[in-house]
Structure formats: C-alpha cells, structure tokens
C-alpha cells in the first residue's frame, strides 16, 4: 500500500462569538496503490482539494491518520516531512499561477533539483533540465521564457516536469485540466498517464469532470459535502451507481448523440 487515509477529519471554525465548526472533510477513508489511479469526483466546494492538501500535510488534519509507505505523517516534524515530500508531489489547477512569475522556465525546473541536491554539477543540472523538458514534450526554446509567455497547456507541462524532477512515488493532480481546452486536455492527460506508467506512480486524480475521471481512473471515489459517499471500480461507479448522489452526478453528464461515441476506450 502506497498511501492510506483513515478517518480523516478537517474542521474549520466559523464565527467569533458563536463558534461552530464546519466539517470540510468528514471521516474519509481510502488508499492508493502503486501505479494505480484513484479518481476523486464531486462538485466544487465538496472538499476534494482539502483532502489533497491534508494528504500532503500542507494543512494539518483535525484528526485521523495519513500513512505513506507505512509511515505516519500526522505529527511528523517539518524536517522529516520535507524529505518525504520529495516522493509525494502535487500538480495544481492553475498552471500559470503555480509557477513563479519572475523565474525563467529553466530556473523553475532547476529549483527542485538544487533544493534536494539531486545534481552535483552545473552541467549535470543542465542536462537533467533538458531531459525533463523532452519528457513533457517541450523544446529548448522554452527554457528562456517566463510563465506569462507560455500557453496554459505549455505551463502545465512545465509544472508536470517540475514534479517529475523529483521522481515521486505519489502524485496528486488537482483539477489539472479544468482550465484547458478539450484538445490540450487530451494532450496533458495522455502525458500524465504515460509518465505514470513509465515510473509506476500512484495517482490521486481530482476532478469535477466525470467524463475525464471515467477515462483516466482505475477506481473512483465520490465525495459530497465532505463525506465519501461511494467508492468502487470505474465500471461500478459509472454503470451501476448505488448511492443516490452518485446517480444524480452521473445523470448530469451531457448526452452526446450515441452514434458518435465509442464508450469504454481507456486513455492510452
């Protein structure tokens, strides 16, 4: 088991005088295996991203446990966490905003390598940066650019390259394509799937787009108002949803004329 979440709770307090708690994440349990993709779906504001941040300990859970390769992450010291975070990384929704606006792409890509001392010399660093660029399908001309000079799809590729630089075992992709065009979305998702298979990475794929989740996930978890309401294989969730909320959610998929759809084609 790569990463396991047990009874995870995150409570935020609301109000100054009449304090009351809002449970953003309420008793969530699931796990992600090596090389597996777990899709996490739900409406905006249901707590999907909070789960992601809790798993990486970017915010502290109110209670519950997160175990990464058997190690308990809650209550771990920052120094120890920093080491472990090399192996668990995140790709965010807004690619332009997740890159430093005043750093060139070459600098952004070299930063994680330097931080974790993964390269010994300048030449090695340069080579590794070029190799990463190549892996995500960008060319050397992009190295000297700033994030605002890239398109959304290109910026997202850079964000993915930065994550790959650290050779992680677990990646959270938090709505990586919701701001991108359908065609660019296909490029980015096939890239993520290809890299996942090459490096056997466990992937938590967060999205509100049911069609996308259906195409990339092995298993799917459905979240509603902070709770996991249903979890199962992709076929189970989309073919025989059990929970009333899952049924509702799958009913919102826009119907395309069936004659043009070829269903059950997994993302390759």
């Amino acid at each position: 088991m790569l990463i396991e979440v047990k009874n995870l709770v995150k409570e935020y307090s609301v109000g100054i005088f009449n304090k009351s708690g809002v449970r953003a994440v309420d008793d969530v349990n699931f796990c992600v295996q090596q090389g597996e993709t777990l899709g996490l779906v739900g409406e905006s504001g249901c707590g999907k991203s909070t789960v992601a941040r809790l798993m990486l300990m970017l915010i502290k859970p109110t209670s519950g446990s997160v175990r990464f390769e058997g190690q308990e992450l809650t209550g771990m010291s920052q120094a120890k966490l920093a080491k472990i975070r090399r192996e668990m990384q995140i790709v965010f929704q807004q690619p332009q905003q997740s890159l430093h606006p005043r750093m060139k792409i070459s600098e952004s890509l070299a930063e994680p390598l330097k931080l974790y001392r993964l390269v010994k010399s300048k030449t090695e660093e340069k080579n590794r940066v070029k190799q990463l660029l190549d892996e995500v399908g960008l060319s050397e001309e992009h190295l000297e650019r700033y994030p605002h000079e890239l398109s959304g799809g290109q910026a997202q590729r850079v964000a993915i390259a930065r994550v790959l630089a650290l050779k992680p075992k677990f990646i959270v992709a938090d709505e990586p394509t919701s701001m991108l065009d359908v065609s660019v979305q296909a490029q980015i998702l096939s890239l993520i799937k290809k890299l996942q298979q090459e490096h056997t990475i466990g992937l938590l794929f967060i999205s509100h787009d049911l069609e996308v989740v259906q195409a990339v996930s092995d298993r799917v978890a459905v979240m509603h108002q902070g709770k996991l309401v249903e979890m199962g294989s992709r076929q189970q969730i989309f073919r025989q949803p059990q929970h009333s909320y899952t049924k509702y959610l799958t009913s919102t998929i826009l119907e395309m004329p069936t004659s043009i759809m070829r269903n059950d084609v997994a993302c390759q």
């Binding site: 979305q185 296909a186 787009d209």
Partner: peptide
C-alpha cells in the same frame, strides 16, 4: 475529426 477524437468519450487522442 481530431478535435472530436480528443473528447474523453472518444478515446482521448491528443492532436
């Protein structure tokens, strides 16, 4: 054709 093929339900083939 390519744009339609890049839809999730149509095989996700990128252009």
């Amino acid at each position: 054709q390519s744009l339609l093929d890049s839809l999730p339900g149509r095989g996700f083939k990128p252009i």
